[in-house]
């Protein structure tokens, strides 16, 4: 009997337990995940078309093999994490199979599934999926986009610590309708470096391993840390522009915002021309409809309260 969960409004069934997600009701899943044994590694013909050198923290080592390779196989896409294993996503994105390398712990497989593979799968199913964290404030969502390792989660956590429910850690699904752009909450989980946990959480909270290759910690829902559960209008987009100077907010023109945001859109198939054209139009519409800013600040925990204050004051003034 498969387990069922909801992540970014996707009803996901799984042959293995995913304790990071909240169980969901539903007999007609949008997508099924199958964790196969490490031995099941058939040779398949792959048309490799893209690779990511930098890992999920934005780190790139010279002469190191790619962190992730993407290729086309007969019935879909192959996502190969060379140090962890393969994920095969069917063309219709209704099925994900994982064949981990021998010895890879399940916690690592789950992290790659939830935080790497599913955002890419969603990019094929949704209008747009941003590599952004987000929080709920005054019944609206504000999103923080930035490069890996730039502090999106830490900034979101600093808002959450002051009572703003977390909306997304680094995968934000956006839909557009009659009411404008709506943000869809991801799932109750945020990943932080131990230094961020120590600096932002005054009392001890239970944390879990994220994966076997990182010291990051995963925080689930607690009394102190709330997560949003329903969609909400997107009020503003903030692009993190960390630097050495003072905290400052800079309004981006739609063109500047488009260039800044388009690189933070997840995209499973960067060679799909019709998809790229649609995504281009979607980002253009998003930047015309939703105000976008660059938020400049030095990467110090001590300035986060000032960053929050500037953003919230700006929201109160109506952006």
């Amino acid at each position: 009997m498969p387990h069922a969960y909801r992540i970014c409004d996707l009803l996901l069934s799984s042959n293995s337990v995913l304790p990071e997600l909240v169980p969901a009701e539903g007999s007609d899943p949008d997508c099924h995940f199958e964790l196969l044994s490490a031995e099941e590694h058939p040779v398949v013909e792959v048309d490799w078309f893209h690779s990511w050198k930098a890992d999920e923290n934005g780190l790139e080592e010279e002469n190191k093999e790619p962190w992730l390779r993407l290729g086309r196989v007969a019935d879909g896409y192959l996502l190969r994490f060379p140090s962890c294993g393969d994920f095969i996503v069917s063309t219709d994105t209704m099925r994900i199979e994982c064949r981990p390398l021998p010895g890879i712990p399940e916690v690592t497989v789950r992290h790659l599934l939830l935080d790497q593979v599913i955002p890419l799968v969603l990019s094929r199913r949704e209008r747009i999926v941003l590599h952004a964290s987000a929080v709920l404030t005054r019944n609206c969502v504000i999103a923080f986009a930035g490069n890996s390792g730039q502090g999106k989660s830490t900034l979101a956590m600093s808002f959450a610590r002051e009572g703003c429910p977390l909306f997304a850690d680094d995968c934000l699904v956006l839909r557009v309708g009659l009411e404008g752009w709506m943000a869809i909450p991801s799932y109750p989980g945020i990943r932080l470096w131990p230094s961020s946990v120590d600096a932002l959480l005054r009392e001890s909270v239970p944390t879990r391993d994220v994966a076997d290759y990182t010291s990051k910690r995963r925080l689930g829902e607690t009394e102190m840390l709330r997560y949003a559960s329903g969609s909400a209008p997107l009020r503003g987009l903030f692009v993190l522009a960390c630097g050495a100077g003072e905290v400052a907010l800079e309004k981006l023109s739609p063109g500047q915002a488009m260039i800044a945001l388009v690189k933070f859109a997840y995209n499973l198939d960067v060679k799909d021309v019709s998809f790229l054209r649609r995504q281009f139009d979607t980002v253009a519409r998003l930047t015309e409809d939703v105000p976008a800013y660059a938020i400049h600040y030095p990467r110090e925990f001590a300035v986060l309260s000032t960053v929050r204050e500037i953003i919230l004051t700006h929201l109160e003034e109506g952006l």
Binding site: S253, P254, G255, M258, V273, L276, R277, F280
Partner: peptide, 20 residues
């Protein structure tokens, strides 16, 4: 895509974006 006074271009073959 022309937006206000700016223009954004995307090369669909290479994925290269450029702002004017």
């Amino acid at each position: 895509r022309k937006i206000d006074n700016d223009t954004v271009l995307l090369n669909l073959q290479t994925g290269t974006y450029f702002g004017l």
